[in-house]
């Protein structure tokens, strides 16, 4: 299955344990945190099933723009993004889309960029 991925390059891939570690950590976060996060923020909140002040503008700002908010974004946005990047990269390889060297840069690069944006938003809100 991994012929064309490795046949042309014989050098050792030293970075793979890093991507695999981020994939695993992100997988745990996706499984343990995301069900509750999606249920409360993307289902109950827009359906108006939470108390009115639970995520008002003031309360949501206070909760997000804080140290726990920074950790929340790390566990709910950044790590799951690297998990998704890893699965997308290997999924694209499985169905022969693009070439792996470029997909790798695009996927992990995209996850890193969005992670920096997400953490940057929290820091900006915190410092304001």
């Amino acid at each position: 299955m991994s012929i064309s991925k490795h046949a042309t390059q014989h050098k050792q891939a030293f970075d793979e344990p890093l991507w695999w570690g981020l994939f695993s950590a992100g997988g745990i976060c996706f499984a343990v945190f995301l069900p509750a996060v999606i249920l409360f923020i993307a289902v109950l909140l827009p359906l108006g099933l939470l108390p009115a002040e639970a995520l008002s503008y003031e309360r949501a700002s206070t909760l997000l723009f804080s140290v726990p908010g920074f950790l929340f974004v790390g566990a709910v946005v950044c790590l799951p993004l690297f998990h998704a990047a890893h699965r997308l990269r290997h999924g694209m390889f499985d169905i022969s889309v693009g070439n792996d060297a470029l997909n790798k840069k695009l996927m992990y690069g995209g996850a890193a960029l969005l992670s920096i944006v997400a953490l940057g938003i929290v820091v900006t809100g915190f410092l304001r």
Binding site: F65, V77, P80, L81, G125
Partner: peptide, 26 residues
Amino acid sequence: YMLREATVLPLVFFTLCLLAGMVALL
């Protein structure tokens, strides 16, 4: 196996929604 790989597609959608919400909050 492919279905499991595909679980990240709606995850990415939710993450982008969440990022939009964070920008909105700012």
